[in-house]
Amino acid sequence: MRSKIKFAVVVFPGSNCDRDAFNAVERIMEQEARFVWHKDTDLGDPDVVILPGGFSYGDYLRCGAIARFSPVMKEVVRFANHGGVVLGICNGFQILTEAGLLPGALLRNESLRFVCMDTFVRVERSDTIFTESCKPGEVLKIPVAHGDGNYYTDEEGLKRLEDNGQILFRYCSAQGKIIAEANPNGSVASIAGIVNTAGNVMGLMPHPERAVDPVLGRIDGRKIFGSLIHSLVRKDNESFSVHS
């Protein structure tokens, strides 16, 4: 039996939420964490890989478009394809779509402006490893900070996401209503976060690592990390492999 989950936080040049993600899982959630440099090809046998927020490679060509060619990404894709758990936050979400691990794309915000603010997201499924500590329909307060968070997929793609239950979070009002005013970037169907069909790769635009330390006045991000930790520890104890 094991008590701590091992997180690997990938550092691309231009990542700037890498330390925040590291501190969130290591200091606040009290798990193991290590950084993995983008030129490394060894992830170091983690339970979870985090692709953190930031501006990898300056986001100059298109957000996440260069990062997907980073040496470490080959390993991340391999890891994910073998069932490893991957969490992409903000720029990490953008990289996951560029790498083809998640469907759709993240466009410029509808306002054409960067936006940093608290948002509310509704938990659409609570039976995933990323959300199992949440109640169905629960509203979490988690901040966003992005210029390109406008999730896009075509009608067919949206139908697939909905049919497969891949939408985990939607922007909503404080009361949990899905309304346009609560959508900070114009995302299709107010999508804030999605998971792949296998259920082991999630990307979201809000920053759960900014909502774990009570001193900052936001703690709902704990539910996401807590879900992950809880489910992985449990699976371990049940002696299921996370790769199964």
């Binding site: 925040d20 402006r113 900052l216």
Partner: peptide
């Protein structure tokens, strides 16, 4: 204006824009 600035990165701002007469950073 200030919503176009990331005031939360580094998870250190205890009080950001509009919350107090001065910003407070731990």
């Amino acid at each position: 204006v200030y919503e176009q600035y990331d005031s939360m990165v580094q998870t250190s701002a205890l009080l950001g824009p509009g919350e107090s007469d001065a910003a407070v950073v731990r």
